[in-house]
């Protein structure tokens, strides 16, 4: 069964991924007076990636707040505001800078409800531009989804399309707990039809982007598009790949992935984070521990980021993360049982 985004019969409009996120924030600011945006240079500058854009002109500086360059403090202010009645959407300029705020995200936001025995809530959203491919090198290109996915109390999503970027952000705001959204920088300019108005995309649900019989490719963020590109090539040779957009790292959609692997008997995990101890390891273990194990016709394969920081040189940078030809080759190996 195809777990499609719950999109009612409404008008759609072509939008970029960045515009879809801005649209979601504008809708949220209009719907709920307790929603505020916080972040570095999100006001008149419009955000480092022009995601907030003109929102400050529409909603004013009280609701679209430029923060000082204080990631730890800024994140903590968002936690305190969320604890006491606001719903902040906090933008990290780059997800890498969340390393400066790990204390507030991991020790405070994620654990507050639990430590206080359910007597408090931290309903906030951290937006984190992530991923490589922009030539920004080692400190502006990382993929931290496995880091945050390891923390109970957080929810972690990675939209791969404009429609999901909007729907997942609106779902994150509706969630009573902290949600981290990794926005892939290479997707900001990607355009597609996006439903107008308010809707949510459920957190924790993967989406089958391309049904297939021969091999399951579970991919996230930009890797979804590379996997789809690989699947088209594979189709020409009669290999029918099923491409699943993971969408949510925590919680992870066990049912969709297990059902797919039972059907295809082969699993390839593709993700941009460092391969070792990454999201693919979790998915692999999940399959190994599930009823899908008995249906496997080949070992499980993982394609992930290199065991190195993201390099500057463009050829090295491309080589450091999975590309479509590598995905295609790995899928062929699985189908031919050459692993």
């Amino acid at each position: 069964m195809n777990a499609q985004t719950a999109i009612p019969e409404v008008k759609t409009r072509e939008m970029s991924y960045a515009e879809a996120i801005r649209d979601a924030m504008a809708i949220a600011l209009e719907r709920d007076p307790t929603v505020i945006l916080m972040g570095e240079d999100i006001g008149v500058y419009g955000g480092a990636f022009q995601v907030t854009g003109d929102l400050v002109e529409r909603f004013g500086t009280d609701r679209v707040m430029d923060t000082p360059i204080s990631e730890l403090g800024g994140a903590g202010v968002a936690v305190g505001a969320a604890l006491t009645g606001l719903k902040p959407i906090f933008e990290f300029q780059f997800s890498d800078f969340a390393a400066l705020a790990m204390e507030q995200i991991v020790n405070q936001a994620a654990k507050m409800r639990y430590m206080l025995g359910g007597e408090a809530a931290v309903p906030l959203v951290f937006r984190m531009p992530a991923g490589s491919g922009t030539g920004a090198a080692a400190q502006h290109s990382q993929s931290f989804e496995a880091w945050f996915g390891h923390v109970p109390g957080l929810k972690v999503v990675q939209p791969s399309t404009p429609a999901d970027a909007k729907g997942l952000l609106l779902a994150a705001l509706e969630d009573p707990d902290p949600v981290i959204i990794f926005e892939h920088k290479l997707l900001y300019k990607m355009k597609a039809q996006v439903p107008e108005g308010y809707y949510t995309t459920p957190i924790g649900k993967a989406q089958i982007m391309r049904p297939g019989r021969d091999v399951t490719i579970v991919a996230s963020a930009i890797m979804v598009h590379r996997a789809l590109e690989a699947a088209e090539k594979l189709a020409k040779d009669g290999i029918d790949a099923e491409v699943i957009d993971l969408r949510s790292v925590r919680p992870i959609d066990r049912d969709t992935i297990i059902a797919s692997v039972r059907k295809t008997g082969r699993l390839l995990c593709v993700y941009e984070g460092v391969r070792t101890l990454g999201v693919g390891a979790e998915i692999s273990a999940m399959i190994a521990e599930s009823e899908a194990f008995d249906y496997l016709d080949a070992p499980i394969l993982r394609l992930g980021g290199a065991e190195a920081p993201i390099p500057y040189n463009p050829d090295l940078e491309r080589a450091a993360v999975p590309q479509a030809p590598a995905i295609e080759a790995a899928a062929r190996q699985l189908v031919r049982r050459e692993v």
């Binding site: 403090g73 903590g76 202010v77 936690v79 305190g80 505001a81 606001l86």
Partner: peptide
């Protein structure tokens, strides 16, 4: 840990 959180609570007020 509580210092920025307090600032956030004051921001809400």
């Amino acid at each position: 840990g509580g210092l920025p959180i307090a600032v956030g609570a004051a921001l809400t007020a």
